[in-house]
Protein backbone atom coordinates (compact mmCIF):
# COMPACT_ATOMS: atom_id res chain seq x y z
CA UNK A 1 0.00 0.00 0.00
CA UNK A 2 1.51 3.29 -1.00
CA UNK A 3 1.87 6.43 1.08
CA UNK A 4 -0.32 8.23 -1.45
CA UNK A 5 -3.24 6.00 -0.65
CA UNK A 6 -2.76 6.59 3.03
CA UNK A 7 -2.78 10.34 2.42
CA UNK A 8 -5.97 9.95 0.42
CA UNK A 9 -7.58 8.17 3.37
CA UNK A 10 -6.57 11.05 5.64
CA UNK A 11 -7.81 13.69 3.20
CA UNK A 12 -11.24 12.13 2.90
CA UNK A 13 -11.51 11.97 6.67
CA UNK A 14 -10.37 15.55 7.17
CA UNK A 15 -12.73 16.96 4.55
CA UNK A 16 -15.67 15.21 6.15
CA UNK A 17 -14.58 16.26 9.65
CA UNK A 18 -14.33 19.93 8.81
CA UNK A 19 -18.07 20.16 8.28
CA UNK A 20 -18.65 19.28 11.92
CA UNK A 21 -16.40 21.98 13.37
CA UNK A 22 -19.40 24.03 14.46
CA UNK A 23 -21.11 21.09 16.10
CA UNK A 24 -23.12 22.28 19.09
CA UNK A 25 -24.26 19.60 21.48
CA UNK A 26 -27.13 20.54 23.81
CA UNK A 27 -26.28 20.84 27.50
CA UNK A 28 -28.44 17.91 28.58
CA UNK A 29 -26.88 15.74 25.88
CA UNK A 30 -23.40 16.75 26.99
CA UNK A 31 -24.27 15.76 30.56
CA UNK A 32 -25.52 12.35 29.45
CA UNK A 33 -22.39 11.87 27.34
CA UNK A 34 -20.17 12.79 30.29
CA UNK A 35 -21.91 10.18 32.45
CA UNK A 36 -21.56 7.63 29.66
CA UNK A 37 -17.83 8.35 29.19
CA UNK A 38 -17.23 8.08 32.92
CA UNK A 39 -19.00 4.70 33.22
CA UNK A 40 -17.38 3.42 30.00
CA UNK A 41 -13.95 4.35 31.32
CA UNK A 42 -14.58 2.56 34.62
CA UNK A 43 -15.96 -0.56 32.89
CA UNK A 44 -12.96 -0.73 30.56
CA UNK A 45 -10.51 -0.50 33.48
CA UNK A 46 -12.49 -3.04 35.47
CA UNK A 47 -12.44 -5.50 32.54
CA UNK A 48 -8.69 -5.10 32.15
CA UNK A 49 -7.88 -5.39 35.85
CA UNK A 50 -10.30 -8.12 36.86
CA UNK A 51 -9.95 -10.32 33.80
CA UNK A 52 -6.27 -9.61 33.14
CA UNK A 53 -6.85 -8.49 29.57
CA UNK A 54 -3.56 -7.55 27.95
CA UNK A 55 -5.07 -4.30 26.66
CA UNK A 56 -5.01 -0.57 27.25
CA UNK A 57 -8.41 1.05 27.96
CA UNK A 58 -8.56 2.76 24.55
CA UNK A 59 -8.12 -0.64 22.85
CA UNK A 60 -11.41 -1.88 24.32
CA UNK A 61 -13.90 -0.57 21.77
CA UNK A 62 -17.34 0.32 23.16
CA UNK A 63 -19.24 -2.17 21.01
CA UNK A 64 -16.75 -5.01 21.48
CA UNK A 65 -18.47 -8.35 22.05
CA UNK A 66 -17.44 -9.78 25.42
CA UNK A 67 -17.78 -13.53 25.03
CA UNK A 68 -16.86 -16.29 22.56
CA UNK A 69 -14.80 -14.88 19.72
CA UNK A 70 -15.05 -11.26 20.90
CA UNK A 71 -12.84 -10.27 23.83
CA UNK A 72 -12.82 -13.99 24.56
CA UNK A 73 -14.40 -14.08 28.00
CA UNK A 74 -15.82 -17.38 29.27
CA UNK A 75 -18.37 -18.45 31.88
CA UNK A 76 -15.81 -18.21 34.72
CA UNK A 77 -15.04 -14.66 33.61
CA UNK A 78 -18.76 -13.91 33.68
CA UNK A 79 -18.97 -14.82 37.36
CA UNK A 80 -15.91 -12.75 38.22
CA UNK A 81 -17.17 -9.85 36.14
CA UNK A 82 -20.57 -9.94 37.84
CA UNK A 83 -19.00 -9.77 41.31
CA UNK A 84 -16.59 -7.03 40.27
CA UNK A 85 -19.34 -4.88 38.71
CA UNK A 86 -21.65 -5.27 41.68
CA UNK A 87 -18.82 -4.29 44.04
CA UNK A 88 -17.53 -1.37 41.96
CA UNK A 89 -20.86 0.16 41.00
CA UNK A 90 -23.20 -1.07 43.74
CA UNK A 91 -25.58 -2.29 41.03
CA UNK A 92 -27.15 -5.74 41.05
CA UNK A 93 -26.73 -7.88 37.92
CA UNK A 94 -29.83 -10.07 37.72
CA UNK A 95 -29.17 -13.81 37.89
CA UNK A 96 -31.58 -14.64 35.08
CA UNK A 97 -31.98 -14.49 31.30
CA UNK A 98 -31.60 -10.71 31.32
CA UNK A 99 -27.91 -11.08 32.19
CA UNK A 100 -27.35 -12.59 28.72
CA UNK A 101 -28.31 -9.32 27.08
CA UNK A 102 -26.45 -7.22 29.66
CA UNK A 103 -23.19 -9.05 28.98
CA UNK A 104 -23.33 -9.00 25.17
CA UNK A 105 -20.99 -6.03 24.68
CA UNK A 106 -19.02 -3.45 26.65
CA UNK A 107 -21.69 -0.88 25.77
CA UNK A 108 -24.53 -3.12 26.92
CA UNK A 109 -22.88 -3.36 30.37
CA UNK A 110 -22.48 0.42 30.43
CA UNK A 111 -26.10 0.89 29.36
CA UNK A 112 -27.35 -1.37 32.16
CA UNK A 113 -25.27 0.44 34.77
CA UNK A 114 -26.48 3.89 33.70
CA UNK A 115 -30.12 2.79 33.64
CA UNK A 116 -29.80 1.13 37.05
CA UNK A 117 -28.31 4.31 38.54
CA UNK A 118 -31.07 6.41 36.96
CA UNK A 119 -33.72 4.12 38.44
CA UNK A 120 -32.20 4.50 41.90
CA UNK A 121 -32.06 8.28 41.46
CA UNK A 122 -35.69 8.42 40.34
CA UNK A 123 -36.86 6.37 43.31
CA UNK A 124 -34.87 8.55 45.70
Amino acid sequence: MSGNNEMMVQDVRLSRQSAAEGLVIPVDERARSATYEDVLDRVRKLLIEQLHLQREPDEVDPDSVLFATGLGLDSVDAVELTVAIETEFGVKIPDNEQSRTIFRTVNSVVDHLIKAKEEVANVA
Partner: peptide, 12 residues
Protein backbone atom coordinates in the same frame (compact mmCIF):
# COMPACT_ATOMS: atom_id res chain seq x y z
CA UNK B 1 -22.64 5.17 10.17
CA UNK B 2 -19.16 6.57 10.50
CA UNK B 3 -20.07 9.07 13.20
CA UNK B 4 -18.28 11.85 15.08
CA UNK B 5 -17.22 10.26 18.38
CA UNK B 6 -18.80 13.15 20.30
CA UNK B 7 -22.24 11.92 19.26
CA UNK B 8 -21.66 8.21 18.73
CA UNK B 9 -22.80 6.74 22.04
CA UNK B 10 -26.06 4.73 21.97
CA UNK B 11 -29.36 6.49 22.59
CA UNK B 12 -28.87 9.85 20.88
Amino acid sequence: GLVDTRVSRPGI
